[in-house]
Design a protein around this nucleic acid. Structure first.
Length: 104
DNA sequence: GCAATGACTTGGT
DNA sequence: CACCAAGCCATTG
């Protein structure tokens, strides 16, 4: 019979898993690559609900301004993970745009 | 079934 | 650069 299309969380997981080491991408880009271009907010919600022991590179996801959307301790954790991943920041905590799936 | 929620985005000031 | 308003829409309770 007909295969059901995978749910949005599943498609989002797949896209995030494909982000190369040393690069980052945005919520909006993930939504676009997952076939739901208007659902950037859902991408954020899905990431928030990820188990803390997830093997997905959730830390490679930033907002459209190239900044980390998390705050407080979570912000620190993501920034450390990105630095360890080889991602550079500008003086105002902006990510150096090495974007995966960026629209050309 | 419906209103509230939100790790977003764009555009304006 | 910082902040605010409106648009967006699947998921939650």
């Amino acid at each position: 019979m007909e295969d059901c299309e995978p749910s949005l969380p599943i498609r989002v997981y797949t896209v995030i898993a494909s982000i190369p080491e040393g690069k980052v991408t945005t919520y909006g880009t993930i939504a676009r690559l997952a076939g739901a271009p208007r659902n950037s907010r859902q991408v954020g919600t899905i990431l928030q609900r990820l188990p803390k022991d997830s093997k997905l590179p959730w830390f490679r996801v930033v907002n459209s301004q190239g900044k980390i959307s998390l705050t407080g301790p979570d912000y620190i954790r993501q920034k450390k993970a990105l630095l360890a991943d080889g991602v550079l920041f500008t003086r105002s905590d902006r990510i150096n745009f090495k974007i995966y799936g960026w629209p050309d």
